[in-house]
Every structure is written in structure tokens, then in C-alpha cells.
Design a protein around this nucleic acid. Structure first.
Length: 547
RNA sequence: CGGGGAGUGGCGCAGUUUGGCAGCGCGCCUGGUUUGGGACCAGGAGGUCCCGGGUUCGAAUCCCGGCUCCCCGACCA
């Protein structure tokens, strides 16, 4: 991971444990700059900074119901009175606890609060340096509304503020529709910085600009049309033909004419999942539908359930059946007979299946048309890898109902508050900015988030004249309000240049015997290869052009 | 949680197979030379060999138990 390597080598961070890092002074300066950008943008949409505790009594987690359901499990300990305390992974509970005693009327809203706070999540596997850690700084904001339209408006404002924040940090992001995961709520959007090293896969149509996380992406399915003839079910011998591809060749039919059935376990209970032969299961969609973790059954488990691997059929058994909406209930299909080497043709799902759900549980793929795509113009979605740097959610009243966050509306009727929540991982944002702009040798940060504005090096530390000139230039720059990293170490030029390249500082000023002969210094802007020779009295002016 | 790997000076590692003086490179300290792309010479400091137990005259090395970290997968704002 490039960002991890550079952050460590440049001395920004140091690892204390798995997914737990210390920041050094230079690293923390960058974190503070990012936080200040966030603060500025939050203030500009009237979101006010507050602070909520890291350690929280478990009561509020009981109220929200997340005490035992949060994934990963909540980190907890007992205090001296034997009371269970939670090390907070997120702050919905605590913010609601504050707000519910203050909000009584629709007149009290809308408003929003944010804080930048340490969170702890006991992730199963931290990885990628600052990209997935256990303890981390996160900005999270919460908004409160009397109705959904108002939530929609503020959600858009946050969205715009997020684009500003990420752009100022030097990264381009794509906003995508996302799965809301453990936080809950219905609608959510992720901000993804496109990077090869990213953990998330997104699908995006570059023509109509539909974009979604792979977990969430919805697409146009090929639906088999209804055959007019009243077709009878018949058995067809299909010796050792198990895959959809083989069937497709055997029958000389497109793969959507077949039904593929998989066996999953959801909280130890078997569930059959069927979809058109050309598609695959999206386990996130399935998980959300079942409200439970899912796991694909292995071959032995399938046999134990009395099913025949390769020829599984939802006919003739009583397992719960989930049908993807790619399947036309009235059309006729070919599917397994649950007998070795035999398939059934002419099966009309509506007549034969005992269906529990008929909905979208299929995985979108590169090249598919999204649900928003225009068939005549769009050419199918492209696939990108990326880093999730922000995630915003329309929570609705999911939390406010559970925790009794209510208000009286204009008619004097009690209703629950509509909420939104908006997160940014600060350390991850730094890592993403580095991933987006750096290379093997150079840590590149733009002037908004670099630890210092200017690096100056005295190249001849043993020369009194150079030393005095360097000191005086340093003082002048400080007095002009620049943040300056002054390299006056007794090291050779190579050492200094290499360390500068790792420093993340955008401008290098070199002061040496050679240049001082003309009362000049040498200014190099990162990313350029042309040195500028600048008279000492013009340094300030030159810098103001660059910074 | 499953699979694999590692733990020896500040950092990176060798030594473990076959038990027998605790080693190397970088960094650090002192002195000197050098000074526009990670310099050089000389001298020096620095160790709970992850922890606990066992075998042995003797354990970094063998045996048992534990901890931690890394990688792949599962999982995951």
C-alpha cells in the first residue's frame, strides 16, 4: 500500500498495534489541516461543532437495540461500579440522548451538529495502513428535521459540502448510491476516491452518470417473455451438464431461459435463492432482505438437505424460496430436477413454486445497463475500484422512534424526528489523498493540507554567510505568515533533497553558496522540474504566486 | 473466524535444520575528512533472542502452553 509506505517512511505515523497508530507532530499537522477544512465547510452549511464522549454507558445502546447487534461487536469494559461501558464506534445514540431533551417542537428544527472524535471499531482485519484501522478520527454530523423534504434539502447541502472538502484535499470523488450497512436507514451515498488500491468496487455509467457501489447497484435485467403455448413440464436427460454455460450450449438457448438455484444458510436456516441463469447473487442484497447474515452452503450441506448439487430445484421441497425479479413468474423455464443428470423444461414459476419473496437480489456487473440508463444511448456500466472517504445517510426516523426523539408538529400531534447522518474518516481521507497524488518516491499533498507551506534548506551549514542568510530568510518567511520547515541539519544535499521529497511540503527553497553569489535562492515547486532563481527580496512575491 | 508466515540491539535481518562465545547491514555516539542527489575513515555504545513452563551439564535453537504482529480469505462506516 503506497500511502502506508510513504506515511511510515516520511515519519507521519507509527504503528502501535494492529490497526492502531500514533501520529507524529508532522503527521498530526496534516490531520489538523484536514479537520479545519472540514470545520470550515460544516460551518458554511450551518452545522455546529459539538463534542460527544468516547466512553458511553451501555443504557443508550440498549435503547437503540444495537448493544448486541452492532458489527463488529462493541468494545466494552466494566467500570468500578460494575456498570458496562461502551467504547463508541459511532455516535447516533449519544447525539440523540443530548438532542431529545432539547427538541420539543417543529420550531426547534432543522439544525445539525457535528463533532470530530475518536472511534473504536474492533474490525476483524485491519489493513492498508490508515485505510482500515480500529481506532480512528471521524467527523460525523447529524441533522434533525420535522419532515422528510427538509431532510432531503439538507442532505443535498451536505453532499455539496462533501465535494468541497474532498476537492480541497486534492482528491476527485464519485458519489455513488450505497448500502447503508450497520448504520441503518434507507438511502445512503458514498463518496469514492477512485484508486486501484481501493477496497470498494463501484459501477458507473459514464453516459447517464448512474453510479452505485457494487453492493447496491441495480440494473436492467433481461426478462424472458411469456410463451403463448400452454407448455407441459417434461424431464430432459442432461448427462453431467451442470453449469448454466453447458446447459446453454446443450439446449442452444440464451442463459436467461434457465433458472439457477443456490442454497444459503441464514442464521442456520437453509434458504433457496433462484435467479435467471445469466445472473449471480448479490449477498448484500440477500442479507438485507433476510435481515441476517448469509452464507453459501457447501456441497456436503446441500446433499444433507436432500438436494442434488448441480441439479437443485425449488420444486418438491418446503425450503423458503427467494426469487430474483429477473424471473418472469408466467414464463416457462428450464431448471434442475433435483435428480442426477436430469433437468425439467416447461416450468412456469407461478404454478410450481412456493415463493416467499420475489425481488432484486442479483449482482450488477460491468457492461450491464443500470436502471437509470437510456437503452438507446448508454453503453453499459464501467467498473472502478475506489476508497470510500465519506458516507452520508438518510436515517429517517429509524433511531428517533426507538429512542423517543419526538416533537409536536403544527397540528400539535406528536411525531418522531427525521434524521440524517454524515461521516468522513479523517485518517482515511489523508491516505486516500496520498494514494491519489503520490508516487513511490514522493509524498505529494496540496498546499491546503501539506504540513508546512515551504521547506527551506541551508545547503552549506559550515559557511557563515549562507548560515546567516538562511536564518534571516527563515525569519522573514515566518514573519510573513508562512509555515516553514527549516532544514539546517548538517547533512549532505542528497539527504536533504530526498527527505524533502518525502515531506509532503509543496515548495522547496534551497539556499547555497552558489546562488547567494547573485543574492538569489532557488525555488522549486513540487511536480515541476524547472528551478526558479529568485532574488532574496522577491521570495515573498514569488511564493504568493505559487501558494 | 479459516489458512499461511513471523517475533533476535532503534529499524531491517542472519543464526534455529545438526543445542556449545549474541552476529551482520542501516541508524546512533566521539574525532577527523567531505559538502548540489541517500559520502568516507577510525574508534565506540547499545540485547529479558516475545512470554511462561519443561528437557539438558548447557537452549535463540528441542518439547508443551500462551501472547502479539503480518499476509490471503471470510467479514466490514
Amino acid at each position: 500500500m503506497l500511502s502506508h509506505k510513504l506515511l511510515t517512511k516520511a515519519g507521519y505515523i507509527s504503528q502501535l498495534g494492529a490497526g492502531i497508530f500514533s501520529f507524529t507532530p508532522i503527521g498530526w499537522r496534516v490531520i489538523e489541516k484536514i479537520k479545519n477544512i472540514i470545520r470550515y465547510e460544516m460551518n458554511s452549511i450551518d452545522c455546529h461543532e459539538a463534542n460527544f464522549p468516547v466512553i458511553q454507558p451501555s443504557d443508550i445502546w440498549e435503547e437503540s437495540g444495537r448493544i448486541d447487534s452492532f458489527i463488529p461487536p462493541l468494545a466494552r469494559f466494566k467500570d468500578r461500579r460494575d456498570k458496562i461501558m461502551i467504547i463508541a464506534p459511532t455516535h447516533e445514540e449519544s447525539v440523540i440522548s443530548l438532542v431529545r431533551s432539547e427538541v420539543n417542537s417543529y420550531r426547534d428544527m432543522p439544525f445539525s451538529l457535528f463533532h470530530i472524535q475518536t472511534k473504536f471499531r474492533d474490525e476483524t482485519r485491519p489493513r492498508g495502513g490508515l485505510l482500515r484501522v480500529r481506532e480512528f478520527e471521524m467527523k460525523d454530523a447529524y441533522s434533525f428535521h420535522a419532515d422528510q423534504n427538509d431532510l432531503d434539502d439538507i442532505y443535498e447541502k451536505f453532499s455539496n459540502a462533501y465535494f468541497n472538502i474532498f476537492n480541497k484535499c486534492g482528491i476527485d470523488v464519485i458519489k455513488v448510491a450505497a448500502d447503508s450497512g450497520a448504520i441503518g436507514g434507507k438511502v445512503s451515498s458514498e463518496f469514492i476516491s477512485v484508486a486501484e488500491s481501493g477496497e470498494d468496487t463501484i459501477l458507473k455509467c459514464d453516459i447517464c452518470s448512474y453510479a452505485a457501489n457494487e453492493e447496491k447497484a441495480e440494473f436492467k435485467k433481461i426478462i424472458k417473455t411469456i410463451n403463448n403455448n400452454s407448455i407441459e413440464i417434461s424431464e430432459v436427460k442432461t448427462p453431467n451438464i451442470k453449469s448454466i454455460k453447458d446447459l446453454s450450449n446443450f439446449f442452444n438457448l440464451d442463459s436467461y431461459n434457465f433458472i439457477k438455484t443456490m442454497v444459503y444458510f441464514s442464521s442456520k436456516k437453509p434458504v433457496l435463492v433462484s435467479l435467471a441463469g445469466d445472473l449471480e447473487v448479490n449477498e448484500t442484497k440477500l442479507k438485507n432482505l433476510l435481515q441476517n447474515d448469509v452464507r453459501l452452503a457447501n456441497n456436503d450441506e446441500v446433499v444433507d438437505l436432500g438436494l442434488t448439487p448441480g441439479f437443485i430445484s425449488p420444486i418438491g421441497n418446503n425450503f423458503d424460496l427467494i426469487l430474483d425479479d429477473s424471473i418472469n413468474l408466467k414464463a416457462d423455464y428450464i431448471l434442475g430436477a433435483n435428480k442426477e443428470d436430469i433437468h425439467l423444461s416447461g416450468v412456469v414459476p407461478e404454478k410450481e413454486f412456493n415463493i416467499k419473496s420475489h425481488t432484486d437480489i442479483a449482482k450488477a456487473k460491468k457492461g450491464y445497463l443500470s436502471i437509470d440508463c437510456d437503452d438507446t444511448k448508454c453503453k453499459g456500466m464501467n467498473e472502478y475500484k475506489g476508497i470510500e472517504v465519506g458516507h452520508i445517510f438518510k436515517l429517517g426516523n429509524a433511531y428517533s422512534t426507538k429512542m423517543g426523539l419526538n416533537f409536536l408538529d403544527k397540528e400539535g400531534k406528536q411525531r418522531s424526528v427525521e434524521m440524517g447522518c454524515y461521516g468522513i474518516g479523517v485518517g482515511r481521507l489523508l491516505a486516500a489523498a496520498i494514494e491519489a497524488n503520490s508516487n513511490q518516491k514522493e509524498l505529494v499533498l496540496n498546499k491546503n493540507i501539506s504540513p508546512f507551506h515551504v521547506y527551506i534548506a541551508n545547503l552549506n551549514t559550515d559557511n557563515l554567510e549562507v548560515k546567516e542568510a538562511s536564518n534571516s530568510i527563515y525569519s522573514d518567511l515566518i514573519n510573513s505568515g508562512y509555515e516553514v520547515l527549516f532544514d539546517d541539519r548538517d547533512e549532505g544535499p542528497g539527504v536533504k533533497f530526498n527527505d524533502y521529497e518525502l515531506s509532503g511540503v509543496p515548495v522547496r527553497i534551497v539556499i547555497s553558496k552558489r546562488s547567494l553569489e547573485n543574492s538569489e535562492v532557488e525555488i522549486l515547486e513540487r511536480g515541476e522540474d524547472k528551478l526558479r532563481m529568485v532574488k532574496i527580496e522577491n521570495i515573498d512575491k514569488e511564493l504568493s504566486n505559487i501558494l
